[in-house]
Amino acid sequence: MRFPEPVRSADDHASPVWARPKRRSSGGGGGFVGLIVTLLALFGVLTAVLGIKEQSLAEGGAMMDGWITAGVNQGKTLIGQAPEAAEVAADKAGEAAEKTGDALEAGAATTAETLKTQ
């Protein structure tokens, strides 16, 4: 069996191909930057499509502004309802805890009676 000749890598070290160091990725920030670039590209495509559809970039932008305004208003409405929803959820949790406590007390009493009679 013949061994392959060592190959010189970019940093001028003579080593077999399988012993070369692995290349490191660019780090954790690359994914975030890629996401931002992708979102900006999608925004640009949407702007171009709406500009073509409405035959004016201003009218396409106005349409997108309407969508953004509707989304912000819906978000404000949902945020305004959050304290009320939290209060209702807390009341329901309190009622459930009371029912659980009552059930545990009833179970404990039944168990105590069973143990006394045996």
Rank of each mutant, 00 (worst) to 15 (best):
P6G: 00
S56I: 09
M63V: 07
F3C: 06
S9I: 03
P4V: 00
G29M: 05
V88F: 02
E54M: 08
R8M: 06
I36K: 04
S9M: 08
P83V: 06
I36T: 07
G29T: 05
K76V: 14
Q81S: 06
V37W: 01
T114Q: 08
A70F: 09
A19K: 04
S9E: 11
D102M: 06
P83C: 03
P6F: 00
A10N: 12
I36G: 00
L40E: 06
H13N: 04
V17I: 09
D91C: 03
A96V: 14
G71L: 08
A86T: 06
A85N: 10
G28D: 00
T111C: 02
F43P: 04
A86F: 03
K92Q: 05
R8N: 05
L46S: 13
T38H: 08
A14L: 15
D91R: 14
A62Q: 10
A93E: 06
K53P: 04
A112S: 11
L50T: 01
A108I: 13
L35D: 00
A103M: 08
K22H: 08
L104H: 04
D91F: 11
S26E: 06
A108G: 03
H13C: 05
F32R: 02
I79K: 01
K22E: 10
A48T: 09
T114L: 11
Q74K: 05
I68P: 01
G30D: 06
E5I: 03
E59S: 04
F43Y: 11
K99V: 15
G101T: 15
M1V: 14
K22S: 11
L115T: 12
F3D: 02
S25V: 02
F43L: 11
L57F: 15
M1P: 01
D102S: 07
P6C: 03
A106M: 05
A82G: 04
W67T: 00
K76R: 01
A90P: 04
I36L: 10
Q55L: 07
L115V: 13
S56M: 05
M63Y: 10
A86M: 06
G60M: 01
I68N: 08
Q81F: 07
G28E: 00
M64T: 03
A112G: 04
L40S: 09
A108D: 10
E59V: 11
A112H: 13
T47V: 05
A97R: 15
T110S: 10
I52W: 12
M63N: 05
A58E: 15
E84Y: 07
L57E: 09
T47E: 00
D91E: 09
V7H: 03
S26Y: 11
V33W: 10
M1G: 13
A62S: 07
